[in-house]
Structures are given as structure tokens and as C-alpha cells.
Amino acid sequence: MIIDDKKPKICVNADTWFAYNGEDNLLIALEKQNIDVHFHCREGFCGACRTKLIKGNVNYVIDPLAFIDDDEVLVCCCVPTGDIELKTY
């Protein structure tokens, strides 16, 4: 798969790579790739979409209220700031 160099690359579970389209939140981006992520509220307060962030950084569009560990992100309310690597639970 050819990946556009300008767009951030998202790696999931060490085996799937795709280019981030610059607009979706991470949950929608993952769903568009048919990657199964748990979700409930899609607004950052239930914590169902907790995902491990192995590499890279994210920006939150909505303040996350659910508990996450230091190496975890709530994909329903954040966007990548550059290349990132995720591991779904």
C-alpha cells in the first residue's frame, strides 16, 4: 500500500497501516478501516474505547473524562498529531 508521506500514518496492532485523512477522530478513522474498537458514548466519558498508544501523540478535541492510564488514549475524542502506533484491547 502506498502511503502519502504528508499525512500522518496510523499503525494498529503492529499489522495494519493507513494514512490519516486529517479530519476524523481516531475512532471513526479506525472504523473506516474496519478495525473493531469497543465504544459506547463516543464523547469521552464512558471509557469503552480505551486504546493503548505505543508511539506518537494525540490532541483531544473533547476533554476526556473517563479514566485512562498514562499510555492510553480515548480514540473517540482525539486526533493524531503525527505518526502514531496503537494497540486495541
Partner: peptide, 9 residues
């Protein structure tokens, strides 16, 4: 869901 979030915190 919010209440749960608080006890988890």
C-alpha cells in the same frame, strides 16, 4: 456511564 467513570477514577 458517568457515575461509573467516577468510581473508576
Amino acid at each position: 456511564n458517568i457515575h461509573l467513570s467516577s468510581t473508576q477514577h
